[in-house]
Amino acid sequence: MTKTLLAVTIAGLLFSGSAGAEELLIIANPSVNVTAPLSFGEIAAIYLLRTIAWPDGSRIIPVNREAGSEARTNFTARVLQEDNASLTIYWNEMHFMGKMPPVVQQSEQAMLAFVQSVPGSVGYISASMAPVNVKVLARVP
């Protein structure tokens, strides 16, 4: 009986955690000329530095939230589908090989402001935030 209660409790916590994960919007600077929506694979290719230029040849500047933030954790799990430790090692290796890892912004407001102002940038915010002066490339439920 105790085991059953424990299992139900854990399942409930997992379910509530999943349901509670906030929807994300993938946003880009208005100058970005690309057909939305992008697939998760295309977004992952940007953040894994395998796609480094938009179709018009302009440079992509991926933007990440700070390590440990809920938004970054959700984005990493749902879009990149990699663990944070491996990603950090990967980005450090890519940086040493001449590719630029995603830049980091410490808050949702800072992320939005950066993407609004920097041509070629792409980032993510929670869907509860108004995507003003940015282009929405995808939704992450």
């Binding site: 700070e66 950090t88 890892p101 830049v103 912004q105 410490q106 950066f114 920097v118 070629g120 940038s121």
Partner: peptide
């Protein structure tokens, strides 16, 4: 300065 507005992260220069 595009990326100059970003926060510093050790290892990213």
């Amino acid at each position: 300065g595009a990326r100059a507005d970003a926060d510093y992260e050790l290892g990213h220069g």
